[in-house]
Simulated scan of single mutants.
Amino acid sequence: MPAANAALLARLIRHPRGDAGPALLGTFQSHYRWLQAHTVRNEIRQRWFEFFQDFDIVLMPVTSTAAPAHHNKLIDRFGRPFDVDGVRRPYWDQVKWNALANVSGGPVTTIPVRRGKSRGKSGLPIGLQAMGPSGGDLTTIEFAALLGREVDGFVPPPAFA
């Protein structure tokens, strides 16, 4: 991770009030601070456990846009802003939906549902994710398979077909 942290530090120097500062701080934390965050994670997981007593899955977006285009920068994630309805958003806004699923401690299965339209051209994939309770992997996988039959599903990009 030294290269990634160096990229974060360089980004922080260029944009002191940007997203790199909080991300860099997250890579250097005390054990006490980690324990505090872990307590919060466990509380969130308990709430999801209770939720899944009544529901099998939660269906939600994977990201706030179609899949982001590749940008050929291996370590500078912050150099990837994107637009939502004409508003420029920082890269880390893309991970909020899957971060919600990750912190739950349960499985998530991603389902490609269609391709976006971008300036008249065929766009990149748009997906949904089915989140289930801890240990509910087979439920999310089965749901994804059933939904995949009803939508366009996965279509390999032309370069990979």
Rank of each mutant, 00 (worst) to 15 (best):
M1S: 13
A7T: 14
L8K: 13
L8C: 11
L9Y: 10
L9N: 03
R11A: 10
R14P: 01
A20N: 06
A23Q: 10
A23N: 08
L24D: 08
G26E: 12
T27Q: 09
T27F: 11
F28W: 11
Q29E: 12
S30V: 07
H31M: 14
Y32C: 08
Y32T: 15
L35V: 00
L35I: 01
V40F: 02
V40H: 03
V40M: 06
R41N: 12
N42W: 06
N42K: 12
E43S: 14
Q46K: 15
R47I: 08
R47L: 12
R47F: 02
F51S: 03
Q53E: 09
F55E: 01
T63L: 12
S64P: 15
S64E: 04
P68L: 08
P68C: 07
H71L: 01
R80Q: 13
G86L: 10
D93L: 14
Q94E: 10
Q94P: 02
Q94T: 12
W97T: 00
N102C: 00
N102F: 00
S104C: 00
G105W: 04
G105T: 06
P107V: 04
V108M: 07
R114T: 14
R115T: 15
R115F: 15
S118F: 13
R119C: 05
K121V: 03
K121G: 00
G123F: 02
L124R: 04
P125F: 05
I126W: 02
Q129R: 01
A130G: 04
T140R: 03
E142W: 08
E142Q: 12
F143E: 03
A145P: 00
L146N: 06
L147G: 04
R149L: 04
R149G: 05
V151E: 06
D152Y: 09
A161G: 04
